[in-house]
Write a protein that binds this DNA or RNA. Structure first.
Lengths: 219, 219
DNA sequence: ACAAAAGTGTTATCCATACACCCATGT
DNA sequence: ACATGGGTGTATGGATAACACTTTTGT
């Protein structure tokens, strides 16, 4: 009668904008039966750590960053989702600004890489389903919260912010309407600095007044 | 090193309208350290049942009904949420039409009863927090899905439906606007019958065209 | 006849959308 | 001077919100 219980794991759907595409971080597995297949990073939850803490720990291991947007997604509890063990997995989704992050592999995995969300390989476990749910949630929350801040650098131009929205939502937005909306929400403040990286007219740089999740109608 | 893992449980927040109030079902506990306290019903997930199945099983045990609206809420994973064991709990919320249901206790509990959501006793574990999250989710989903059907009998009057919305949202709605909206959504059909229980002008009875969850702007 | 809930339309306001030109800069 | 993205305002249509009276029944 010992050990007659499911184990608990976490899985991380880590989103970032890389090369102008919405990407997720995937690890390549070493062990059978999923050898060489790709999956979301994750791991078992220890007896003395909270599930949230396990997700944060794992995120730190893979990206070496903490203090990012991290939200529980849902819990996958099918009996056969892992063919070898009974594992109930709590999925999280994270938003990071990839510019200063390099993904770190470990002995446990063959590789870790960014994949554009619309060009995912076949994934292990029920992770294909998980990716769909995560993407739907991201799109939906983009429209009524301020969580984009998780994907943005410290300061950025309004066009850059608009691009991120367009990439994720998969449609063009009207520049004037976008700016009108963003300004009316009063989430941003001007830094007073300008983007000098471009060779054209410099754009004002903005930053978020605060970087924590709020509920707001955006688009 | 054996058994060094959290266990997995489900908790059920079962909503229903009872005596014109939004209520949840609570069980009264027998065992220490929560003796006599109230909590949401729930139980451990077996090794060979999915988490969803465990939730359904538990709901059936408590209410003797199946085929109701049941949705995963979130997973509570704090280390100390249960002082005796390490239990990660997947919370669900269910909507039932209480008219034909009587709550069933069991040897495990002292009692089971409906409590109005705004008059809850102090709850065991982290269940007070859970009740807040469940209620917020119910209110929010009421506004963009058709899940009210879970709380309604087979056929009902428009005024009855409006009352249910008003009870849950905690505010009065305009009768004409409500009806305009409901009709424009085309979720209902007239049964052709009339409510003869009242002593006044009889109201048309309606039923839902289909009883499954849909995303729709309602209020 | 009266009490009580059922049923029904119109107007005003707000918000989302569509749309085009001038500006500041580096080369 | 020119090429490039930055920056700005207005007009229209659709949805939401406010609002009051007539109808049908049982007693």
């Amino acid at each position: 009668m010992k050990n007659e219980h499911p184990k608990v794991a976490v899985d991380l759907v880590i989103f970032s904008i890389v090369d102008g595409m919405l990407c997720v971080a995937l690890i390549q597995m070493k062990k059978k039966p999923f050898e060489d297949m790709w999956a979301f990073p994750g791991g078992l939850v220890g007896l003395k750590e909270s599930v949230d803490a396990a997700a944060k720990r794992d995120l730190k291991e893979k990206t070496d960053i903490s203090n990012v947007y991290l939200e529980q997604l849902y819990t996958a509890g099918d009996v056969d989702r892992d063919p070898l063990h009974r594992v109930v997995s709590v999925a999280y989704f994270a938003l990071i600004n990839s510019e200063k992050v390099t993904l770190k592999t470990s002995k446990k995995y063959k590789d870790i890489r960014w994949f554009p969300v619309n060009k995912l390989p076949r994934l292990a476990y029920d992770h294909s389903e998980m990716s769909k749910i995560a993407l739907a949630r991201l799109k939906s929350k983009l429209e009524y919260t301020n969580i984009v801040y998780g994907l943005m650098p410290e300061s950025f131009t309004l066009s850059h912010l608009q691009q991120v929205y367009e990439i994720i939502l998969g449609r063009k937005l009207d520049k004037r309407n976008f700016r009108k909306k963003i300004h009316s929400l009063r989430l941003l403040k001007k830094t007073g600095l300008f983007d000098r990286k471009t060779t054209r007219r410099p754009a004002s740089l903005y930053k978020f007044k605060e970087r924590k999740s709020k509920i707001i109608e955006i688009l």
